[in-house]
Design a protein around this nucleic acid. Structure first.
Lengths: 150, 150
DNA sequence: ATTTAATATTTGCAAATTGCAAATGATTGT
DNA sequence: ACAATCATTTGCAATTTGCAAATATTAAAT
């Protein structure tokens, strides 16, 4: 069996390209990192700045500034947490939701294009495998989380 | 079935963390991008600067400078192509090969740790699935390659 | 053979991104 | 009230970025 790492490396790289190719939505061009931020804010329920920064493995001071620029672009909103006024809860604006949804749509379209080269059984096996992989990585704790917080 | 993209996004992110965690080898700390460059130079046979830049989807002027710093670190060597003196062929120095091999070792160790949470059948299925996925992505041409050269 | 286009790589430069250290504002425990 | 802790933001200096233009070499055209 060839080097397992090679398989993962190539796949991840390709998926990264896919991600980069889906960074514009309705005349709004955003960076790859910004796309990841929108995705993560959408996924979590009113996360704090720190939560998103940690999820993405970005330095928090860097992240703070990235949020500022997304706010300037009117894609993200910052609301003080009523329970703890130190924290700011992040959420997407209507426009932000639209951009995020549009990116999600593009990504899923691409993924379907990829899966069109497989039969139903293969597709099912692949999806099941990714799920398995994610669970195994979650169990492996330290190694697959943010380097700094590891 | 939940959103397929979510599965891929999380997996890719985790694998990215894994990559970042494997960026030091024998007292030599390198950046994530530099790690990718070493990997790609190692994989290809005496590639040109342009070939590696395109494989990694990096702007070529940026890449040119990254190669320069790797040369300063004595991890990479640049040899003029005898057949076409415009191009410089890249290769790893002995030290570069050592660093690349060490990173590869760390990555495979981590991957084995992850696979230790599966039985042999599951592991086999997952690896087979990644292969399938890579083939399908290769067939889908445009979408999973570098954005600029699309 | 000389001129012209193309190609691989490198620089100038100016803007954007980075992370550390320190500051701010808010909360908790004593 | 007080110090310790925490979430977030700024100052700052260094690195990284990409575009446009320069350089060096090759291929094509006349």
């Amino acid at each position: 069996m060839k080097n397992v790492r090679e398989l993962f490396q190539i796949m991840t790289r390709r998926f990264g390209f896919l991600d980069k190719n889906c960074c514009s939505a309705g005349g709004c061009d955003i960076s790859l990192i910004q796309s990841h931020i929108l995705y993560e804010i959408d996924r979590q329920h009113k996360p704090s700045i720190q939560q998103v920064a940690e999820a993405l493995g970005t330095d928090i001071t860097t992240f703070s500034r990235q949020v500022q620029s997304l706010i300037k672009m009117k894609l993200v909103k910052k609301t003080p947490d009523p329970d703890d006024r130190r924290v700011n809860l992040l959420s997407l604006t209507t426009e932000g939701k639209y951009v995020a949804a549009s990116i999600d749509q593009q990504m899923n379209d691409y993924l379907n294009k990829i899966f069109s080269h497989m039969n139903d059984f293969e597709k099912d096996t692949v999806i099941r495998s990714i799920k398995l992989l994610n669970e195994a990585m979650a169990k492996s704790g330290q190694c697959c989380s943010t380097p700094s917080f590891g």
